[in-house]
Amino acid sequence: MASDLIILCFLLLGLSFSPVISTNSEGNALHALRRRLSDPTNVLQSWDPTLVNPCTWFHVTCDSENHVIRLDLGNSNISGTLGPEIGDLQHLQYLELYRNGISGKIPTEIGNLRNLVSMDLYENKFEGKIPKSLAKLKSLRFLRMNNNKLTGMIPRELSSLSKLKIFDVSNNDLCGTIPVDGPFADFSMESYENNRLSGPELQGLVPYDFGC
């Protein structure tokens, strides 16, 4: 009987701690993000890795199961880079990093955030190509990357994002032609202005890499 009680206690302990293990992994990802960022006004001061989970941190929102679903760091005077750890926030729905000084490439691991609904990276210093992995974000509705230093073509893979309603890559250094398939049929030309883009593909009559 005593041994049965001991086993039962261990099982209950395992059940009670399982959510903590999950949220700790997200806390580790956010702490890794913090180490990559310069934060002169201490916006991230509450991001204490010794806490059980990050749900008490400022600018972080969790759901009822203590999963991080929202990261609100827009207009926060932060700089630095993003790393692959951002892809560990598996339950994230809103990634708001607009109007900062974040530079470097957009990590391909963002494509792992399958629940992402909105990603606002506009008015930063991101460079390099738009990752093709963003095409895996099938729940994405809002994608704003305008006013950065992005180069290369708009990945044709993004035309599979059937839920995409807002797309803005204006004021970058993108080249090639503008997609016309899927949601791109509805975006205004203002979404693409001040790049080196060569206009729509004209239903396939113009090569997508024309002028790139």
Rank of each mutant, 00 (worst) to 15 (best):
A2F: 10
L5Q: 12
I7H: 04
L8I: 13
L8Q: 12
L11C: 11
L13M: 14
G14D: 05
G14S: 12
G14L: 12
S16H: 08
S16F: 01
S18V: 09
I21K: 02
S22N: 09
S22M: 05
T23P: 03
H31L: 13
R36L: 15
L37V: 13
S38W: 09
S38V: 11
D39F: 07
P40V: 10
T41R: 08
N42C: 08
Q45W: 03
S46A: 14
W47Q: 09
W47C: 03
D48R: 06
N53E: 06
C55R: 01
C55V: 07
W57C: 05
F58D: 14
F58K: 15
H59W: 02
H59M: 02
V60C: 03
T61Y: 04
D63I: 05
E65A: 14
H67K: 10
I69N: 11
D72E: 15
L73P: 01
L73H: 03
N75P: 00
N75E: 11
I78G: 00
G80S: 11
L82W: 07
G83V: 08
L89M: 07
L89I: 03
Y94M: 06
Y94E: 12
E96Q: 13
E96L: 13
L97W: 01
Y98N: 14
R99F: 02
N100L: 09
N100G: 08
I106W: 00
T108M: 11
E109V: 00
G111I: 05
R114K: 14
R114P: 02
L116D: 00
V117T: 13
S118V: 00
S118K: 07
M119W: 01
L121Q: 01
L121P: 01
N124M: 00
K125F: 11
K125T: 11
E127H: 09
G128N: 00
G128V: 10
G128L: 09
K129P: 15
K129G: 07
I130P: 01
P131V: 01
K132N: 03
K132R: 12
K136R: 13
K136Q: 15
K138W: 02
L140N: 07
L140A: 03
R141H: 07
R141V: 06
F142A: 06
F142I: 15
L143G: 05
M145S: 02
M145A: 09
N146A: 07
N147V: 13
K149Y: 10
L150H: 11
L150G: 13
M153D: 02
I154S: 07
P155S: 12
E157Q: 14
S159P: 00
S162G: 08
S162F: 05
S162D: 08
F167M: 06
V169D: 00
V169K: 05
V169L: 02
S170H: 09
N171K: 15
D173Q: 15
D173I: 10
L174K: 10
L174M: 14
C175D: 07
C175H: 09
P179L: 05
P183A: 07
P183E: 08
F184L: 04
M189P: 03
E190R: 11
Y192Q: 06
N195Q: 08
L197S: 10
P200M: 12
E201H: 11
G204V: 06
L205F: 13
V206D: 14
Y208W: 10
D209V: 02
F210I: 12
G211C: 08
